[in-house]
C-alpha cells in the first residue's frame, strides 16, 4: 500500500509542473495589463509604468519570470497579491473553508439523493419512476448553473421569501470564526438563530452546486446497478433466498459503487468549477468568487497561485478516490 501511494505521488510531479506552467501562461495570454488596470481611469505615465514593470519583474524575459515563480512555488512562496499585497497562500486558506463548506454540502446532497435514486431507478427499470428520474437527471445535467441559480433565487428568495439572496449569514450576527466553517462557528458562538441563519444561506447554493453531480451520480449509479444486477453472483444471492432489498442494497450496490466512486471523484473538479459561478451569483466569499475578481483585476499571482492550489486539491481528491477503490474492491487492495 505504501509503495502504491508513493508511486502515485511520483506521478504528481509532471502534473504539478504542467499545472504550474499552464496557470502561469494562462493569465498572461489574456489581454489586459495589470499595471494599466491598477492605474485606473487616470492612467499612468510611461516613466511610472516602466518603474512598476521593473518592480513586478515584467521587464525580464518570460522564462526567467517563470523560473522565479516556479522556484518560489517549490519553496512554498506563491507570491503576494498585486491588489491586497497579502500572500496568496494566506488569502487562499482564509477563503477556502467557505468553498469547502459549500462543496461538501453540495457533494453530500448529491450522494445522499443520487445513490438511492439511481438504485431505485435500476431496480424499477423501464417503469414510470425510472423514466421520470432519468429525464429529470438529464435536465439537471444540461441546465446552465447561472440560469438555474437565478431561477431559484427569483422563486424562493424573491417570490416566496423563504431564503436569503446572498452571503453566508445575516449581518446581525457577528462572532469569531476559528474554523472558517460557518455551520460550526455559528453553532459554537451560541448565538440564538445564528446556526439557522447559516443553514438558510446554504440551502440555495448547495442545491445549485449539487445539481450536476447529483444528476451524474444518479445516472452512473443506475447504469452500474443495471450491469451488476445481471451478474451471476446476484443470481446466487437470489438462489440463497435473500430478499430483494438485501440483494440490491448489499450484494449489488457494493459492486456498483466502484464506478460510482470514480464519478464522485471526477465530480470534485466539476464542483470547484461550478463553485466559481455559484459563489459569484450568491456573493459567497469563497475562492471561486476570489478567483473571478482576481481575473478581472489581472492579479497575476492570485490567479496562477489559486489555480495551482485548486489543481493540487483535485489531485489529492483523485488520490483519495484511488485509495477508496481498495477499500471497496478487494481485488485492487491485494495487488
Amino acid at each position: 500500500m505504501l509503495n502504491y501511494v508513493l508511486s502515485r505521488l511520483l506521478t504528481f510531479v509532471p502534473t504539478f509542473f504542467g499545472v504550474t506552467l499552464i496557470s502561469f501562461a494562462f493569465i498572461r495570454v489574456l489581454p489586459g495589463d495589470p499595471i494599466i488596470v491598477m492605474a485606473g481611469e487616470r492612467g499612468v505615465s510611461q516613466e511610472r509604468y516602466d518603474q512598476l514593470a521593473a518592480q513586478f519583474g515584467f521587464d525580464r524575459p518570460m522564462y526567467v519570470q517563470f523560473w522565479d515563480y516556479f522556484t518560489g512555488v517549490l519553496q512554498g512562496d506563491l507570491g503576494n497579491s498585486f491588489v491586497t499585497k497579502k500572500p496568496v497562500w494566506d488569502e487562499f486558506f482564509t477563503l477556502f473553508p467557505a468553498t469547502l463548506e459549500l462543496s461538501l454540502c453540495a457533494m453530500v446532497l448529491a450522494i445522499v439523493l443520487g445513490l438511492p435514486a439511481g438504485v431505485i431507478a435500476a431496480v424499477n427499470r423501464g417503469k414510470f419512476f425510472d423514466r421520470a428520474l432519468m429525464s429529470t437527471a438529464l435536465v439537471g445535467y444540461s441546465m446552465p448553473i447561472f440560469w438555474w441559480a437565478l431561477l431559484l433565487i427569483i422563486v424562493f428568495s424573491g417570490n416566496l421569501g423563504w431564503t436569503p439572496v446572498s452571503g453566508r449569514i445575516d449581518l446581525l450576527y457577528y462572532f469569531p470564526d476559528p474554523t472558517g466553517f460557518m455551520l460550526i462557528d455559528s453553532l459554537a458562538s451560541g448565538q440564538k438563530g445564528a446556526f439557522w441563519s447559516a443553514i438558510r444561506h446554504l440551502i440555495l447554493p448547495t442545491i445549485v452546486l449539487g445539481t450536476i453531480p447529483l444528476a451524474v451520480i444518479a445516472r452512473q449509479t443506475r447504469s452500474a446497478m443495471l450491469e451488476v444486477l445481471g451478474e451471476d453472483y446476484v443470481r446466487t444471492a437470489r438462489a440463497k433466498g435473500m430478499s430483494p432489498a438485501r440483494i440490491n442494497s448489499i450484494h449489488a450496490l457494493r459492486n456498483a459503487l466502484i464506478p460510482v466512486i470514480t464519478v464522485i471523484g471526477l465530480s470534485v473538479g466539476t464542483l470547484l468549477a461550478g463553485a466559481i459561478l455559484t459563489e459569484t451569483i450568491f456573493s459567497w466569499p469563497g475562492i471561486g468568487k476570489w478567483m473571478v475578481d482576481s481575473i478581472f483585476r489581472r492579479d497575476y499571482p492570485v490567479v496562477q497561485g489559486g489555480l495551482l492550489l485548486i489543481a493540487v486539491m483535485v489531485m489529492i481528491v483523485n488520490l483519495t478516490v484511488d485509495m477508496l477503490y481498495g477499500l471497496i474492491n478487494p481485488k485492487i487492495r491485494k495487488r
Binding site: 451478474e231 451471476d232 453472483y233 443470481r235 438462489a239 450484494h251 457494493r254 459492486n255 474492491n329 481485488k331
Partner: peptide, 22 residues
Amino acid sequence: RRVVGKDLAMIFQEPMSSLNPC
C-alpha cells in the same frame, strides 16, 4: 424465499463469477 436457499438449493456453472467478489 423461506424455501429457496434452505430446502431447495442450487449451484452454478461458473464458480468464479457466481461468488460476490466484494
